[in-house]
Amino acid sequence: MQFTLHTIFPEMLRSDWNALLEESVSHVPFLRYEYLYSWWQTRGGGEWPVDSDLVIVTATQDGRLAGIAPLFRANHAGRKALMLIGSIEVSDYLDFIVRPVDLDDFLAGLLPFLAQEVPDWQALDLYNLLDSSPSLTALQRAAAGQGWRFAAQQLEHSPYIPLPGDWETYLASIDKKQRHEIRRKMRRAEEAAVPIDWSITTDPAALETDMETFLALMSQDPEKETFLTPAMRQHMRNTMCCAFEEGCLQLAFLNIDGKRAAGYLNFHYIDRLWIYNSGLDRSFSEYSPGWVLLGDLLKWANENGIREFDFMRGDEEYKYRFGSVDRFVMRATLVREEIANEAVLKPDALCKAAGSGRG
């Protein structure tokens, strides 16, 4: 493989980038060219300083794009690190972009290339790889080949619901008490004295207003209000606009008597619904708007060919009450020089879901 270093986003590779992602070891929306480019404009909503450096490495083989390492250089955990673009807080799943068949060759060539061509770094510090990603074991093999130290650390729960494609079959698969609660609350909404329905934003002319409405709903939660700094608000707007333009935004609202009572920001990407964030107007709590909208979304997903309802990072109790299966995201660290074990594996505050405004 022939490797090339890019210090700006390679616009000429945009279509090839996304085409490779479709065949990659991890086909997730957070690795699309458009999302990562948008993330970089605000450095993840202000999570990273503006003077961070792009270190995007592409590999070609026989004239075709074979792999992408979307990295940037930053000071993290007490050392100079190369990290995946999108790290850490607002991009739930990250990885290298490479076909499974090319993974070992790509990493075996990537590590010495980074050591020789990229100055002034000590470690690869890679967050939010799914525990099922083949990159984890491939990185361990590649690190051993270079004599580097490798460590893997479990970060967060990332539950999901496998969907059967039928609403009643789904309900029958979850706990009886929870099934009763879902039906009771949805029926109460249907029989309410005021009109209650739900909608998805599809009109480009309504997008700006609906984005602001959603952010206002998020802000009613004190933790999320703190999370939504001006830079983070801009990141959220950029993400929603980007997803809308790419046809994968699902901005859903529960409407009670003509007012927005709850909202979910999701991505409808490939055959999954990726549940990214939510907001709630607590003045409508008597109608259980969050639960009702979540029930409507699950029913819609079962009826529209969605194979998986992915809650992504966070172990909030309600996710499991709706029938979630557990999995985890991981942190993989490859260190070039001797660093104490506690520094390699030291958990840091950026990993904690409590500060992410999620849920």
Score class of each variant (00 low, 15 high):
residue 54 L to A: 03
residue 54 L to S: 02
residue 55 V to K: 04
residue 55 V to S: 01
residue 55 V to C: 08
residue 55 V to P: 06
residue 56 I to Q: 02
residue 58 T to H: 05
residue 59 A to Y: 13
residue 61 Q to E: 08
residue 64 R to W: 13
residue 65 L to P: 04
residue 67 G to D: 01
residue 68 I to W: 03
residue 68 I to S: 11
residue 69 A to L: 14
residue 70 P to F: 06
residue 71 L to D: 14
residue 72 F to A: 15
residue 72 F to E: 12
residue 76 H to C: 09
residue 76 H to Y: 14
residue 77 A to G: 00
residue 83 M to H: 14
residue 85 I to T: 09
residue 86 G to M: 11
residue 88 I to H: 01
residue 89 E to K: 11
residue 91 S to C: 04
residue 93 Y to P: 09
residue 93 Y to V: 15
residue 94 L to C: 02
residue 95 D to C: 08
residue 95 D to T: 06
residue 96 F to V: 04
residue 96 F to K: 06
residue 98 V to Y: 10
residue 100 P to R: 08
residue 101 V to M: 10
residue 104 D to Y: 03
residue 106 F to N: 13
residue 107 L to Q: 03
residue 107 L to W: 00
residue 108 A to C: 03
residue 108 A to F: 01
residue 108 A to R: 03
residue 109 G to L: 02
residue 110 L to P: 12
residue 111 L to E: 12
residue 113 F to E: 09
residue 115 A to T: 04
residue 117 E to G: 03
residue 117 E to S: 07
residue 117 E to C: 09
residue 118 V to I: 08
residue 119 P to N: 13
residue 120 D to L: 11
residue 122 Q to E: 13
residue 122 Q to M: 09
residue 124 L to A: 05
residue 124 L to S: 05
residue 124 L to R: 07
residue 126 L to Q: 07
residue 128 N to I: 14
residue 128 N to P: 12
residue 131 D to T: 15
residue 132 S to E: 10
residue 133 S to H: 04
residue 133 S to K: 05
residue 133 S to G: 03
residue 134 P to H: 10
residue 134 P to C: 12
residue 134 P to G: 06
residue 135 S to L: 01
residue 136 L to P: 07
residue 138 A to V: 03
residue 138 A to N: 00
residue 140 Q to V: 11
